[in-house]
Computed example of a mutant assay.
Amino acid sequence: MPPVAVLGLVFLYPLALVVQQSLTPDSGGTFSAYAKVFGSAAFRDALGTTVWLAVGATAGCLLLGFVLALVIAFVPFPGARAVSKFIDVFLSFPSFLITLALLFIYGNVGMANGLWTGATGAGAAEGPFHFLTTPWGVLLAEITYFTPFVVRPLLAAFSQIDTAQLEVASSLGARPLRIVRRVIVPEALPALASGGSLVLVMCLNEFGIVLFTGAKGVTTLPMLVYGKAILESDYPAACVVAVVNIAISVGLFGLYRVVSKRAGA
């Protein structure tokens, strides 16, 4: 009972207040806030932007994470163990720190533009790298930050693979790509599913990366909650967007649990 009481006090009660404010706002009218928010173009744009950024970042993290984990686990090179340990440390970094590092490199006055203008003699504003304030910059930052969340479970899965299987497949004449496709990928599917699901849910709720990139034309659901609550003081609308964001996240988590059980993962 004590853990349940603490959970109810610090999480369930505030969540209930958010849902209540979205359903019956102080201004009156049941579901009036939902009708107002669902009818706005800003909400529809934010929902579409959130979904495509989350799906795109998840796909990029799965592809990049699989390649990195494959290299670290099966390609011998000096420092492989150190790289694996660095990934564990990378998981503890806050998202805005990674975004800040990208700004120092690819920002309008970052290192890349500085090197370009220094080499060509062009003006400071004529550097070619201005994509961080676009959706593609947000996508790059999210892939950079969330890829280790895919690499870590993949490395754990690869450590369970019997190397004798790889040796037998190689001795039978299988090429490296076929070994990866027929031996390694089937063993990695549960780890890919878990890592990809985690990244998808985290990208749906990511706030710091979008805020620190300064992408003014990129509004996601968490950014819309921030704008409605802090900038416009429209708390019922902010609660509605928050409830929608929560429903999407919980729905995806439930779908993952159902699919994983049916797949025997």
Rank of each mutant, 00 (worst) to 15 (best):
V4N: 08
V4M: 13
A5T: 00
G8N: 12
L9D: 11
V10M: 07
V10D: 10
L12G: 05
Y13M: 13
Y13G: 07
P14W: 04
A16L: 13
A16T: 15
Q21C: 12
Q21I: 14
P25H: 07
P25R: 02
G29M: 01
F31M: 15
V37S: 11
A41M: 12
A42F: 14
A46M: 01
G48V: 05
T49G: 12
A54K: 04
A54G: 03
A54P: 06
G56W: 03
A57F: 00
T58M: 06
G60K: 05
C61I: 04
C61M: 04
G65E: 03
I72D: 12
F74S: 03
P78A: 15
G79V: 07
R81W: 09
R81H: 14
R81D: 10
A82F: 11
A82P: 14
K85L: 15
I87D: 04
V89I: 00
F90I: 06
F93N: 02
S95R: 03
F96G: 03
I98M: 11
I98V: 12
L100W: 07
L103V: 06
L103T: 08
Y106F: 13
G107Q: 00
N108Y: 15
V109A: 15
G110D: 09
A112V: 08
A112D: 11
W116M: 13
W116Q: 10
T117G: 01
T117R: 00
T117K: 07
T117C: 10
A122N: 05
A125E: 15
F129N: 03
F129T: 01
H130F: 03
H130R: 04
L132H: 00
P135F: 06
W136S: 12
V138C: 00
V138S: 00
L139P: 02
I143K: 00
T144E: 05
F146D: 00
V151C: 09
R152E: 04
P153C: 10
P153I: 13
A156I: 12
A156L: 11
A157G: 10
S159Y: 14
Q160W: 11
D162V: 02
A164R: 14
L166K: 04
S171M: 08
A174M: 08
A174L: 08
P176Q: 09
L177V: 05
R181Q: 07
R181N: 09
I184G: 02
V185H: 08
P186V: 02
L189S: 13
P190C: 07
M202Y: 11
N205P: 15
E206S: 13
E206I: 13
F207D: 03
F207L: 09
G208A: 02
V210N: 05
V210D: 02
F212K: 05
T213M: 10
G214V: 09
A215Y: 01
K216D: 14
T219H: 12
L224P: 02
L224E: 01
K228G: 11
E232R: 04
E232L: 06
S233C: 11
D234P: 05
A237M: 09
A237K: 07
A237F: 02
C239P: 08
V240F: 03
V241I: 07
V241C: 10
A242Y: 01
V243F: 02
V244N: 03
V244I: 12
N245S: 13
I246W: 04
A247M: 13
A247H: 01
I248E: 04
V250F: 05
G254Y: 13
L255Q: 05
L255H: 08
R262A: 08
R262S: 14
A263S: 15
G264M: 04
A265C: 15
A265G: 14
